[in-house]
Each structure stands twice: as structure tokens, then as C-alpha cells.
Amino acid sequence: MSTPEQNAPVHTAGAAEESRPSLSALLLDPSFWADWASVVGLVGLVIVFGISQPIFLSIANLQALLLAATILVVLSIGQTFVVATAGIDLSLAAAVMLGAIILGLVNAAGYGIFLACVLAVAATSAVGFLNGVLITAGKIPDFVVTLGTLSGITGLGLILSGGEPTMVGSTFLLRLASGSFGPFGYPVWVAIAAVIVAHIALYHTRFGVHLLATGGQVESAGALGIRTNRVKIAAYTISGFCAGIASLLLVARIGSAEPQINTSLLLNSVAAVVLGGVSLFGGRASILGPAIGALMLTALVNGLTLLSVSAFYQPLAVGAIVVLAALIMRYQK
């Protein structure tokens, strides 16, 4: 065994050269802007809105903004795991609705709020698991399967609820929605916890590496003995689990379970993932990126509202930002 130290100076010199280009070179490199699109976008929005409407930067507004972003942050994390495998989960927002309805019905039936929450999360996780199994065992494209489950669970939600909203008067959920610890409300802490756990899972576990390998080159990953089907099923189950958490936050926020899908949640979750620099072709992902992307989209809506821009213009602004981000992404290496 030769000593690794012999070649060590060469390696370290090379590494330093590689990882430390000059600041001006960095700023001129389009891939730098692509990698940090969501951060740059968020900072840009904060500056623009902060100047044009100082209330935007008030503590109260920033707290409200964070609170409003929590559901989208949690959903974006779930979507990230799926997109990292080169898939897409179109059933995400429908799963949130199903989770909310199950929560409402179980609670209304008198089984207690904790069981209701557990069953809601279990149901959405099961939807994700089903997506994964259909995609891998059935060899059907992700897009088609999740489009199918989107419609299927929408119908299931309408059947279960009879199309009627269910009031959820739970002190537990009320406290979750309105209580706070330190500077942030509980939902914000939930989102922060989700970001930390997901970040560790993606970057510090074997599962995370296998997830990126599966998304990057599925045949190569399989040739090396990675069980790519299991990895995909796990990714969809995580996505379903995140939808369940989001449904708890949603019911806590509005106080009732409504049988309607918030389609902008689905589209914005994909948008946040794209803004976060996650490759739609799989193999490349981060958690902080999409979380900041979700914050940015929420800040955009919040700021436009404060500037009294009609709500009709907001989807237009979101769409423009997402397409712009996708254009910048082309420079990603």
C-alpha cells in the first residue's frame, strides 16, 4: 500500500483551484446565477418590495409571510424528492385535500384529533406509496400515474365528504395555527423541522445518494445493485407524507376541511422546485433551494397584495418568474 500523502499536495492544490474561482469570475458565470436563482430572486423581491412598500419589511408582515409560506415549503420538499428521481407528483394538492377531509371526518366521528391527524398522514402516505408502486411495478410514466391518482383521489374526497366542508373545532389545531415559540409561529417551526430532516436525508444518508443516483442514471444505479424501484417508491411515499403534514397545517389554518383542490399549491410546488435549482431530469437536488423558492413565491404574492395589485395579476407574475427561472437554469452545469 503506497501512502496517500505522497500525492496529497497535488490533490489539495487542485481542489483549492477548483473550488475558489475569483469573485468577479463567479459573478460573470451564468451557472452561479442558475444555482442561486431562488436566493437571488428572494433578495431581489425583498429589496424591491421593501423600497416600494415599507410595510413589507415590518415584523408583523414578515411573520405573516413566513406563516403563509409554510404549507408550500412542506409540499415543495415532498415534490423535490420525487423530482430528484426524474419524476413528478401531480397528485400532491389532491392528496392534501384527501388528508384534510379524512382529518375532518375522523375528528367529526369523535375519534379524537390525534388519531385523525395520524390517519390523515397515513392516508396521504398510502397515496404516495400507491403512486410509486404503479410507476415502478406497472412501468407507467410518472406523469400519467399521478395524473390518474390526482383525479381518483379528488373523486374519493368528494365521495367521502359528500361535497360538504367539515368544521374542525380542535383546540390542538387552533393552538398549532396561532401559537408561537420564540419569533416564529408553530407552523413555521414545523416547516423548519421538515427542511432540516429532509436536508439530512438527502445529503447525509445512503438513501439520499441512492435517490440522486436513481434520478441521474437509473440503469447505472441498477447495475451497481441499487434497488431503484424501492428508491422511487420511497420518494413518492415521502411526497405523500409531506402532503399529509401540509393537510394538517391547512386544516389548522382555515379551521375546516374543504373538498376542493388548491391547484395553485400543486403548480407552485413544482415552480418552487424549479426555482430551487432542482433538475427536472433528476439526479440533482437540494432542499434549501426549493424551500427558498417557496418563500420567494409567497413573498411575490404578499408584496403584490401590499402594493394593491389585483389578485388577477398574481398568477401572471408567478408564471413569468418560473419561466424566467427555467431560462436561467439552462446555464446550469
Partner: peptide
């Protein structure tokens, strides 16, 4: 050593060397 190499482009050299035996 496969003809098509079986490396994962988006992972680093170290990650590829230890893929599935991390």
C-alpha cells in the same frame, strides 16, 4: 467494468467510488 461505464454524472468522484457501499 461495464462497457457503458455505469457512473452517475451528477455525483462526485468520491460518491461514485463508494456508490452502494457508502
Amino acid at each position: 467494468v461495464h462497457q457503458n461505464l455505469a457512473l452517475i454524472d451528477e455525483l462526485t468522484v468520491a460518491q461514485n467510488l463508494f456508490l452502494n457501499r457508502e
